[in-house]
């Protein structure tokens, strides 16, 4: 199994395609950081315009923590597309290249084969997120400095103390890893139904775009299905940045307003992963390799 995993990782990281995602994330983050560095004040003013009508905000709201939050908000919606690029290709790519039949004539059980491939896709996903964390968080902290974080939410504003933020990002990135693994599992699942990688990649992206739109729109009809869409739960990393207040309306350091939402989303995403991978195993075990 370990050998199989090594081989799968070797294949992933020897392919030029793998680095498209890393390059895309790097350039996107660099551009956003550059933009915020040059014109960040205006951006912050624009975002906070409504709030600034009644309040004056003093200090560096545009610090590294805040920039990272903006970056995550911007990117985590699009990272699934980059994940799909690799995950949805895991099996279909081999079928397309003709290597699948070579691989499966080797003394390797299909169960191990699928598990190794899925684990490899997961590791790729996590590597991508670690890279994202390094750029979005650490580089932003370096460029923009640190400080308290002021977040505008739907109906309220949250101010987090600077020494109460890092662990939240750890949690958020951990959660994002799970959310992205769900995407990987979906892409992976779809990838066994085609003998070219375009189909599953486009299918994965379509599902995510479609679900995200349903999740975003506040229409009563859509609200009924929202709780069942995994895309709704993919944004629950934000819950790490909402804090509880005491009876005097002062924040309680180290608290999370809705930990139960995180737990629920983690559970739902985990169930999705299990379903996708389980279905992949079930179908692939019986699949006739005709490519």
């Amino acid at each position: 199994m370990w050998t199989l995993l090594q081989i799968e990782l070797y294949k992933i990281f020897r392919r030029p395609r793998t680095y498209i995602a890393f390059a895309a994330i790097t350039s996107l983050i660099a551009i956003v950081q550059l933009g915020l560095k040059v014109d960040g004040k205006e951006y912050a003013d624009f975002v906070m315009a409504d709030f600034k009508n009644s309040f004056s905000i003093d200090g560096n709201t545009l610090n590294g923590y805040f920039v990272c939050y903006i970056l995550l908000q911007l990117l985590l919606v699009h990272v699934p597309l980059l994940i799909a690029l690799i995950a949805a290709d895991m099996i279909s790519g081999e079928a397309n290249g003709g290597t699948l039949r070579f691989l499966l004539t080797k003394p390797v059980s299909r169960f191990n084969f699928i598990m190794a491939k899925f684990l490899a896709a997961t590791i790729y996903t996590i590597a991508l997120l670690i890279w994202l964390a390094i750029l979005a968080l650490f580089v932003s902290m370096f460029i923009f400095g640190t400080g308290d974080m002021l977040l505008l939410k739907n109906s309220y504003v949250v101010q987090l103390q600077q020494d109460d933020i890092f662990w939240r990002y750890s949690g958020a990135f951990g959660f994002a890893a799970l959310a992205m693994t769900t995407v990987a599992a979906l892409g992976f699942f779809l990838s066994q139904f085609a003998e070219n990688s375009i189909g599953p990649i486009v299918a994965t992206m379509s599902v995510i775009i479609f679900f995200t739109i349903l999740s975003t729109m506040s229409i009563p009809l859509f609200n009924l299905v929202k709780p069942y869409l995994f895309t709704t739960h993919m944004v629950s990393w934000k819950e790490f940045f909402d804090i509880r207040v005491d009876e005097n309306n002062a924040t309680i350091k180290g608290s999370i307003e809705h930990p139960e939402r995180i737990v629920r989303s983690v559970a739902i995403l985990a169930v999705h992963i299990l379903l996708f991978v389980g279905a992949s195993l079930f179908i692939f075990k019986k699949k006739d390799v005709l490519s």
Partner: peptide
């Protein structure tokens, strides 16, 4: 609608109307 922590502040005043409030985390509302 503001969830803010209790913060340490330093307040500067100078006649006639210069006033500045600095907060430890850098942000004050």
């Amino acid at each position: 609608f503001i969830k803010a922590p209790i913060g340490q502040v330093k307040i500067y005043y100078k006649k006639p109307n210069q006033f500045k409030l600095k907060r430890d985390g850098g942000i004050s509302i």
